[in-house]
Nucleic acid binder design. Structure first.
Lengths: 205, 205
DNA sequence: CGTTTTCTGGACTTGCCGGTCCATTTTTCG
DNA sequence: CGAAAAATGGACCGGCAAGTCCAGAAAACG
């Protein structure tokens, strides 16, 4: 199915509109009608671009959001080559979630498990894996520089970090406070940094 | 509204049945009909015991599950007075989630945000707070025994632990593997334990 | 033992929302 | 310019599941 520029634009508009809708009202409160209204499209367009119906659209949104999560952390996440970079990444991540508040794209995908199951699950896993991979790379970099304990299992520590972040965001969604996310990040980084000294306040961004 | 023993039993049966249904099929895949079939009750009974309808029932389930989450970690969680107790708690928690796999009662509540919003949010927050409180108490105990760095902020570390656990469970739900949950727990405990030595394999339960 | 309250059964209503269909307009391209 | 393909509009259908209602069975209670 060839897509004319116009078509591609519409499709994109739909995905973005749906993403917004979901961010604001959750996956459950995302009726096709709302998306239609928000994006000024008709039902036939939705089904034209997403023949698989709602699941299809949701999957596209999941992919879209998954990409954004990673992108929003760049370039820091991709170049965790010094402690400075790590702090900057930490601050950026925190700022991002603090700003957006009650939403986690991961949940967009996650909440779908059981519908577009396999596909959504794949997207989620891929996102997590990519995230973890980049963190692990950063840890290895620190190790190579002798900036952290070389005996640490980089992958495992990265996994722990990712878990902490996810949990922090989850709790942010539930409670509206970023304390847990902060705690998870700071505690995780402190562990990497070693027993030396914890980072008391939050230094320069 | 006084409840006869029979009535109370029925009500309880409904809550438990609904909880099961949700565990197996998610909050979305939990139709009242399913609950009725599973608990051998009729629709009028549902609305008799939960006048507020589905939201009301869901809230009751959230409360029920929240209690279980804490209870299932006892007595260890309530008496984290030694490293041994901490490891046992770790193993118990891991076993619990490994067994139940694709479910997190917290999500039961969480997914409702936007429906029975305030009430569900309260339940969730209370659960988190309680969890964190008990962990913090355990950390303070370690500090009192000189078993861990007294400079650590117990509340903050407890918050980080809770976040790691939540994220680990979340990822368990998405991927089916417990690696992240394990990593979060082990990394968190290792941090408490100090730079001394990480716990390589998983020692005695 | 009879009345009152609680409990139970299940038919019925209602509204929502995903999905289908076809007619119409707009774009592409030889 | 004209046919084919793509894009759009919106009426319509159908089913599902929440919620309502009333009638009848079973307890409670004096």
């Amino acid at each position: 199915m060839p897509l004319t520029p116009k078509g591609a634009a519409t499709r994109q508009r739909i995905v973005e509109g749906a993403a917004e809708q979901i961010r604001e009202h959750g996956v459950f409160g995302a009726r096709l009608e709302d998306v239609m209204a928000r994006t000024a499209t008709s039902k036939s367009q939705l089904f034209h671009y997403f023949p698989g119906g709602k699941d299809d659209l949701l999957l596209a949104v999941a992919r879209y959001e998954a990409d954004r999560v990673i992108e929003d952390q760049q370039p820091e996440l991709g170049a965790l080559t010094s402690w400075g970079a790590w702090w900057q990444w930490r601050d950026k991540l925190l700022a991002r979630y603090r700003a957006q508040g009650a939403n986690c794209p991961l949940h967009t995908a996650l909440a779908q498990l059981g519908r577009a199951t396999d596909a959504a699950r794949t997207v989620t896993c891929e996102l997590l894996a990519q995230w973890q991979r980049q963190l692990a790379a950063g840890i290895r970099h620190l190790q190579a520089d002798g900036a952290t304990d070389p005996r640490l299992d980089a992958d495992r520590e990265a996994a722990a970090l990712v878990a902490g972040i996810q949990g922090g965001v989850l709790i942010l969604m539930a409670t509206g406070t970023t304390t847990h996310l902060e705690a998870a990040l700071d505690s995780g980084l402190a562990r990497l940094r070693g027993p030396a000294a914890d980072r008391a306040g939050l230094a320069g961004s």
